[in-house]
Simulated assay, not measured.
Amino acid sequence: MSDATETPARPGSEPLIEVSDLHITYGRRGAIRRGRGVQAVQGVSLTLTAGRTLGLVGESGCGKSTLIRSLFGLSPVASGTIRAFGKDITRIPPRQRRQFGGRMQMVFQDPYSALDPRMTVHEIVAEPLRITGAYDRRAIDELLDRVGVSAEMAARRPGEFSGGQRQRVGIARALALNPKVLVLDEPVSALDVSIQAQILNLLDDLQKDLDLSYLFVSHDLSVVRHVADDVVVMQAGRFVEEGPIGQVFDHPEHPYTRTLLDSIPHVDFA
Protein backbone atom coordinates (compact mmCIF):
# COMPACT_ATOMS: atom_id res chain seq x y z
CA MET A 1 0.00 0.00 0.00
CA SER A 2 1.41 3.42 -0.89
CA ASP A 3 2.02 6.17 1.66
CA ALA A 4 -0.80 8.20 0.17
CA THR A 5 -3.40 5.61 1.10
CA GLU A 6 -2.14 4.74 4.58
CA THR A 7 -4.33 5.72 7.52
CA PRO A 8 -2.56 8.33 9.68
CA ALA A 9 -1.99 7.49 13.33
CA ARG A 10 -4.50 8.90 15.78
CA PRO A 11 -3.23 11.70 18.05
CA GLY A 12 -1.95 10.14 21.24
CA SER A 13 -1.45 6.71 19.64
CA GLU A 14 2.36 6.82 19.48
CA PRO A 15 3.76 4.44 22.14
CA LEU A 16 6.49 6.10 24.20
CA ILE A 17 6.90 3.55 26.99
CA GLU A 18 6.03 -0.13 26.53
CA VAL A 19 6.42 -2.66 29.34
CA SER A 20 5.82 -6.28 28.35
CA ASP A 21 5.42 -9.27 30.70
CA LEU A 22 7.81 -7.74 33.25
CA HIS A 23 9.00 -9.78 36.23
CA ILE A 24 11.15 -8.34 39.04
CA THR A 25 12.43 -10.65 41.76
CA TYR A 26 14.48 -9.78 44.84
CA GLY A 27 16.67 -12.10 46.89
CA ARG A 28 20.00 -13.90 46.78
CA ARG A 29 20.93 -15.14 43.32
CA GLY A 30 20.78 -18.79 44.34
CA ALA A 31 17.42 -18.34 46.03
CA ILE A 32 16.03 -16.65 42.93
CA ARG A 33 17.22 -19.54 40.73
CA ARG A 34 15.43 -21.97 43.07
CA GLY A 35 12.25 -19.92 42.86
CA ARG A 36 12.49 -18.67 46.45
CA GLY A 37 13.02 -14.98 45.77
CA VAL A 38 10.45 -12.29 46.51
CA GLN A 39 8.40 -11.66 43.37
CA ALA A 40 7.84 -7.91 43.57
CA VAL A 41 6.43 -7.54 40.05
CA GLN A 42 4.80 -10.45 38.26
CA GLY A 43 4.12 -10.36 34.53
CA VAL A 44 2.87 -6.79 34.13
CA SER A 45 2.44 -5.01 30.81
CA LEU A 46 1.55 -1.39 30.09
CA THR A 47 1.76 1.20 27.33
CA LEU A 48 2.07 4.96 27.74
CA THR A 49 1.11 6.83 24.59
CA ALA A 50 2.01 10.35 23.53
CA GLY A 51 0.10 13.19 25.14
CA ARG A 52 -1.78 11.03 27.64
CA THR A 53 -1.71 10.35 31.38
CA LEU A 54 -1.62 6.76 32.59
CA GLY A 55 -2.52 6.32 36.25
CA LEU A 56 -0.88 3.50 38.22
CA VAL A 57 -2.76 2.86 41.45
CA GLY A 58 -2.55 0.45 44.34
CA GLU A 59 -1.86 0.30 48.05
CA SER A 60 1.60 0.80 49.54
CA GLY A 61 3.79 -2.26 49.01
CA CYS A 62 1.97 -3.49 45.90
CA GLY A 63 5.01 -3.02 43.65
CA LYS A 64 4.36 0.41 42.12
CA SER A 65 7.69 1.92 43.16
CA THR A 66 9.62 -1.19 42.10
CA LEU A 67 7.99 -1.03 38.68
CA ILE A 68 8.77 2.63 38.03
CA ARG A 69 12.33 2.22 39.31
CA SER A 70 12.83 -0.41 36.62
CA LEU A 71 12.16 2.25 33.97
CA PHE A 72 15.35 3.98 35.13
CA GLY A 73 17.43 0.82 35.48
CA LEU A 74 17.14 0.81 39.28
CA SER A 75 15.24 -2.48 39.76
CA PRO A 76 16.61 -5.89 38.68
CA VAL A 77 14.55 -7.19 35.76
CA ALA A 78 14.29 -10.99 35.87
CA SER A 79 12.41 -11.28 32.57
CA GLY A 80 10.27 -9.28 30.21
CA THR A 81 11.07 -6.12 28.27
CA ILE A 82 10.91 -2.36 28.67
CA ARG A 83 10.89 -0.27 25.50
CA ALA A 84 11.37 3.48 25.73
CA PHE A 85 10.99 5.65 22.63
CA GLY A 86 11.26 2.57 20.43
CA LYS A 87 14.40 1.13 22.04
CA ASP A 88 14.62 -1.92 24.29
CA ILE A 89 16.28 -0.59 27.46
CA THR A 90 15.80 -3.66 29.62
CA ARG A 91 19.44 -4.60 29.95
CA ILE A 92 21.46 -1.86 28.29
CA PRO A 93 24.46 -0.47 30.21
CA PRO A 94 24.17 2.87 32.05
CA ARG A 95 26.26 4.78 29.49
CA GLN A 96 23.89 3.88 26.66
CA ARG A 97 20.87 4.61 28.85
CA ARG A 98 22.14 8.16 29.45
CA GLN A 99 22.00 8.83 25.71
CA PHE A 100 18.24 9.21 25.91
CA GLY A 101 17.76 9.55 29.66
CA GLY A 102 16.76 13.19 29.40
CA ARG A 103 13.61 12.19 27.52
CA MET A 104 12.12 10.57 30.65
CA GLN A 105 12.39 12.25 34.05
CA MET A 106 11.07 11.65 37.56
CA VAL A 107 9.18 13.92 39.95
CA PHE A 108 9.50 12.51 43.44
CA GLN A 109 6.97 12.12 46.22
CA ASP A 110 8.63 14.10 49.00
CA PRO A 111 9.55 17.68 48.05
CA TYR A 112 11.37 18.04 51.38
CA SER A 113 13.94 15.28 50.82
CA ALA A 114 14.17 15.39 47.01
CA LEU A 115 16.04 18.72 46.89
CA ASP A 116 19.60 19.26 48.11
CA PRO A 117 19.31 21.71 51.03
CA ARG A 118 22.82 23.04 50.38
CA MET A 119 22.04 24.26 46.87
CA THR A 120 20.09 27.29 45.75
CA VAL A 121 16.97 26.80 43.66
CA HIS A 122 18.82 28.06 40.61
CA GLU A 123 21.62 25.56 41.17
CA ILE A 124 19.13 22.71 41.64
CA VAL A 125 17.34 23.38 38.35
CA ALA A 126 20.62 24.12 36.54
CA GLU A 127 22.35 20.90 37.62
CA PRO A 128 21.06 18.66 34.76
CA LEU A 129 21.98 21.33 32.22
CA ARG A 130 25.47 21.76 33.65
CA ILE A 131 26.03 18.00 33.48
CA THR A 132 25.05 17.94 29.82
CA GLY A 133 26.95 21.13 28.96
CA ALA A 134 23.78 23.05 28.07
CA TYR A 135 23.64 25.59 30.91
CA ASP A 136 21.63 28.74 30.10
CA ARG A 137 20.72 31.19 32.89
CA ARG A 138 17.89 32.77 30.94
CA ALA A 139 16.34 29.37 30.16
CA ILE A 140 16.39 28.47 33.87
CA ASP A 141 14.72 31.75 34.83
CA GLU A 142 12.04 31.13 32.21
CA LEU A 143 11.52 27.58 33.43
CA LEU A 144 11.14 28.69 37.05
CA ASP A 145 8.67 31.35 35.96
CA ARG A 146 6.69 28.71 34.05
CA VAL A 147 6.19 26.67 37.24
CA GLY A 148 5.36 29.71 39.37
CA VAL A 149 8.71 30.44 41.03
CA SER A 150 9.97 33.98 40.43
CA ALA A 151 13.54 34.65 39.37
CA GLU A 152 14.00 36.67 42.57
CA MET A 153 13.44 33.49 44.60
CA ALA A 154 16.06 31.51 42.67
CA ALA A 155 18.89 32.53 45.02
CA ARG A 156 17.12 30.97 48.02
CA ARG A 157 17.59 27.44 49.33
CA PRO A 158 14.84 24.81 49.67
CA GLY A 159 14.53 25.34 53.43
CA GLU A 160 13.03 28.76 52.76
CA PHE A 161 10.18 27.33 50.69
CA SER A 162 6.85 25.69 51.47
CA GLY A 163 6.10 22.13 50.38
CA GLY A 164 4.16 23.29 47.34
CA GLN A 165 6.93 25.65 46.28
CA ARG A 166 9.50 22.89 46.65
CA GLN A 167 7.44 20.59 44.46
CA ARG A 168 7.31 23.33 41.83
CA VAL A 169 11.11 23.46 41.94
CA GLY A 170 11.24 19.67 41.59
CA ILE A 171 9.01 19.86 38.54
CA ALA A 172 11.20 22.59 37.03
CA ARG A 173 14.29 20.45 37.54
CA ALA A 174 12.56 17.50 35.85
CA LEU A 175 11.68 19.71 32.88
CA ALA A 176 15.18 21.16 32.45
CA LEU A 177 16.22 18.63 29.78
CA ASN A 178 12.97 18.98 27.80
CA PRO A 179 11.66 15.45 28.45
CA LYS A 180 8.72 13.89 26.67
CA VAL A 181 7.67 11.74 29.65
CA LEU A 182 7.39 12.59 33.35
CA VAL A 183 7.08 9.75 35.85
CA LEU A 184 5.23 11.30 38.78
CA ASP A 185 5.69 9.24 41.95
CA GLU A 186 2.95 10.31 44.40
CA PRO A 187 3.71 13.95 43.50
CA VAL A 188 1.05 15.54 45.74
CA SER A 189 0.62 13.04 48.59
CA ALA A 190 2.84 15.05 50.97
CA LEU A 191 0.90 18.29 50.37
CA ASP A 192 -2.25 19.82 51.83
CA VAL A 193 -5.38 19.35 49.71
CA SER A 194 -5.53 23.03 48.66
CA ILE A 195 -1.89 22.89 47.53
CA GLN A 196 -2.50 19.56 45.80
CA ALA A 197 -5.05 21.27 43.57
CA GLN A 198 -2.55 23.96 42.59
CA ILE A 199 0.13 21.42 41.66
CA LEU A 200 -2.32 19.24 39.72
CA ASN A 201 -3.54 22.27 37.78
CA LEU A 202 0.08 23.22 37.06
CA LEU A 203 0.79 19.70 35.75
CA ASP A 204 -2.30 19.91 33.54
CA ASP A 205 -1.15 23.24 32.07
CA LEU A 206 2.38 21.94 31.49
CA GLN A 207 1.10 18.84 29.74
CA LYS A 208 -0.94 20.92 27.33
CA ASP A 209 1.76 23.53 26.74
CA LEU A 210 4.72 21.15 26.38
CA ASP A 211 2.99 18.08 24.91
CA LEU A 212 4.05 15.90 27.83
CA SER A 213 3.01 12.37 28.68
CA TYR A 214 2.63 11.33 32.33
CA LEU A 215 2.91 8.08 34.21
CA PHE A 216 1.12 9.16 37.39
CA VAL A 217 1.68 6.84 40.35
CA SER A 218 -0.58 7.15 43.37
CA HIS A 219 -2.50 5.31 46.05
CA ASP A 220 -5.09 8.12 46.01
CA LEU A 221 -7.79 7.27 43.50
CA SER A 222 -9.52 10.63 43.86
CA VAL A 223 -6.38 12.30 42.53
CA VAL A 224 -5.95 9.74 39.75
CA ARG A 225 -9.54 10.18 38.61
CA HIS A 226 -8.90 13.91 38.26
CA VAL A 227 -5.72 13.63 36.18
CA ALA A 228 -5.61 10.33 34.28
CA ASP A 229 -6.91 9.26 30.87
CA ASP A 230 -6.27 5.57 31.52
CA VAL A 231 -5.54 3.58 34.67
CA VAL A 232 -4.00 0.29 35.75
CA VAL A 233 -4.76 -1.17 39.18
CA MET A 234 -1.95 -3.09 40.89
CA GLN A 235 -2.27 -5.61 43.72
CA ALA A 236 0.54 -7.76 45.14
CA GLY A 237 2.81 -7.27 42.14
CA ARG A 238 0.17 -7.90 39.47
CA PHE A 239 -2.20 -5.78 37.40
CA VAL A 240 -5.75 -6.78 38.26
CA GLU A 241 -7.64 -4.26 36.12
CA GLU A 242 -6.92 -1.65 33.47
CA GLY A 243 -8.69 0.54 30.97
CA PRO A 244 -9.99 4.07 30.33
CA ILE A 245 -10.47 5.96 33.57
CA GLY A 246 -14.24 6.30 33.22
CA GLN A 247 -14.72 2.62 32.46
CA VAL A 248 -12.64 1.38 35.39
CA PHE A 249 -14.00 3.85 37.92
CA ASP A 250 -17.66 3.67 36.89
CA HIS A 251 -17.79 -0.06 36.10
CA PRO A 252 -15.04 -1.83 38.06
CA GLU A 253 -14.82 -5.56 37.47
CA HIS A 254 -12.25 -6.73 40.02
CA PRO A 255 -13.18 -6.93 43.75
CA TYR A 256 -9.93 -5.18 44.73
CA THR A 257 -10.73 -2.23 42.45
CA ARG A 258 -14.20 -1.99 43.95
CA THR A 259 -12.71 -2.00 47.45
CA LEU A 260 -10.34 0.83 46.57
CA LEU A 261 -13.12 2.86 44.99
CA ASP A 262 -15.40 2.40 47.99
CA SER A 263 -12.76 4.02 50.18
CA ILE A 264 -12.41 7.25 48.14
CA PRO A 265 -13.42 10.44 49.93
CA HIS A 266 -14.89 13.10 47.66
CA VAL A 267 -12.33 15.83 46.97
CA ASP A 268 -12.90 18.65 44.47
CA PHE A 269 -9.65 19.58 42.70
CA ALA A 270 -11.24 22.07 40.33
Rank of each mutant, 00 (worst) to 15 (best):
R91C: 03
P117H: 07
Y112K: 02
I92T: 07
G102K: 12
D116V: 03
F100G: 15
A114F: 13
F100A: 11
T120V: 04
R91D: 14
R118I: 00
Q105E: 08
M104W: 00
I89P: 05
I124N: 02
R103W: 12
G101F: 09
M104C: 07
T120A: 02
I92C: 10
P93T: 05
V107E: 03
I92K: 05
R95P: 12
I89S: 04
I89W: 15
P111W: 13
P93L: 08
Q99C: 05
P93N: 12
M106P: 08
R95C: 04
D110H: 11
R97Y: 15
E123V: 08
E123Q: 15
R95I: 05
I89R: 11
Q109D: 06
R118V: 05
R97C: 10
P117S: 01
Q96V: 05
I124G: 03
P94Y: 10
P111A: 02
P117C: 04
F100W: 14
R118C: 10
R98E: 11
I124L: 06
E123W: 00
R95S: 14
Y112I: 00
T90W: 01
R118H: 12
M119A: 13
I92A: 02
Q109T: 03
V121T: 01
R98Q: 12
T120Q: 04
P94V: 02
Q99H: 15
P117L: 06
S113D: 11
P94W: 13
E123S: 15
L115W: 15
M106F: 08
G101Y: 03
M119F: 07
Q96I: 01
D110E: 11
V107Y: 08
M104D: 02
V121R: 00
P93R: 13
M119P: 07
I92Q: 13
V107H: 01
P111N: 04
G101D: 08
Q109V: 04
P93A: 13
D116Y: 08
A114Q: 09
I124M: 11
G101L: 00
I92D: 01
Q96D: 14
P94Q: 02
M119L: 15
T120E: 02
I124P: 10
M104P: 00
T90M: 05
R95D: 12
Q99E: 14
A114E: 10
T120S: 12
V121H: 04
A114P: 14
F108N: 02
P93C: 08
R91Y: 10
T90H: 09
F108P: 00
Q96F: 10
A114M: 09
Q109I: 04
P117G: 03
G101M: 11
V121W: 04
Q105A: 08
F108L: 00
A114V: 06
P93I: 00
D116C: 11
V107L: 10
F108E: 02
T90F: 08
T90S: 01
P94T: 02
Y112T: 03
F100K: 14
R98D: 08
I124Y: 09
Q99V: 08
R103E: 14
G102C: 06
M106A: 13
P117A: 04
E123L: 06
Q109S: 03
I89N: 11
Q105C: 14
S113V: 04
